[in-house]
């Protein structure tokens, strides 16, 4: 087991954002986390990456308790986040953004991570000297994912990678997610696009107001009548 979350509770002031979340991820899986706005998807990722403090519960990564580790120590462990809203460094070039992605790897200047992300995202190679803030939304999303890959993580957390993208780009991003998974990276995927998320993932958790409402094989959730009604919008 790569990541195991048990009984996780988190608060924003007095708002109880996560209520006893239990979640496991096996090595090599794509696990998706779906649910509506405010269900606790991003909060879960924020707890894993140390951006939000857990009030109780445990987050164990590779048999190591990482609950409430400071954010800057997480990436060095092999967990990397492509955050919601991309959060690229707008005034830095694409290349500088990528270089920051491997900041945690120390002073070593490696070319392998660049080669890998440039192969996945040829557009970024073309534009590696462009200022990130001037990229299109889709390119910024690619940059955010590429930057997260630069640290060569074992566990990649993707928060809403398809948000605000044109339909053909959404398809492209999901193709890339499958490709990254094939390269041996375990992926935790947070999505509002439940349909796509369930299609691409092995297993899924459905969050509702901070709780795990349902979980199981993605294929069976895809055919679940309640899920269809609540999240997929294609009642048949």
């Amino acid at each position: 087991m790569l990541l195991k979350i048990t009984g996780l509770n988190a608060f924003y002031d007095n708002v109880h954002a996560l209520k006893n979340i239990d979640l496991t991820i096996e090595k090599g899986e794509i696990v998706s986390l779906i649910g509506s706005n405010g269900a606790g998807k991003t909060s879960t990722l924020s707890c894993i990456t140390g951006l939000v403090a857990a009030r109780s519960g445990r987050i164990v990564y590779k048999d190591r308790d990482i609950t409430n580790f400071p954010a800057h120590k997480i990436v060095g462990l092999g967990i990397s986040l492509s955050p919601e809203g991309r959060e690229v460094f707008p005034g830095l070039t694409v290349e500088e953004n990528l270089r920051l992605g491997m900041y945690a790897k120390g002073g070593r200047k490696e070319s392998a991570p660049y080669a890998r992300v440039y192969e996945l995202f040829p557009r970024l190679k073309e534009r590696n000297q462009q200022i990130a803030g001037t990229l299109s939304g889709g390119e910024q999303q690619m940059l955010a994912i590429a930057r997260a890959l630069m640290s060569e993580p074992e566990l990649l957390l993707l928060d809403e990678p398809s948000l605000g993208l044109a339909p053909n780009l959404v398809l492209l991003i999901f193709e890339l997610i499958k490709e990254i998974s094939k390269q041996g990276v375990t992926i935790l995927l947070v999505e509002q696009n439940a349909n796509m998320a369930l299609l691409v993932s092995n297993r899924a958790y459905v969050l509702e107001t901070g709780r795990v409402a349902l979980s199981g094989e993605s294929g069976s959730l895809l055919n679940d009548e309640n899920i269809k009604k609540a999240y997929l919008g294609n009642v048949s």
Partner: peptide, 11 residues
């Protein structure tokens, strides 16, 4: 430019 993203990079 972005302190939160910087901490995610390990800074």
């Amino acid at each position: 430019q972005n302190a939160k993203a910087a901490s995610l990079m390990g800074i």
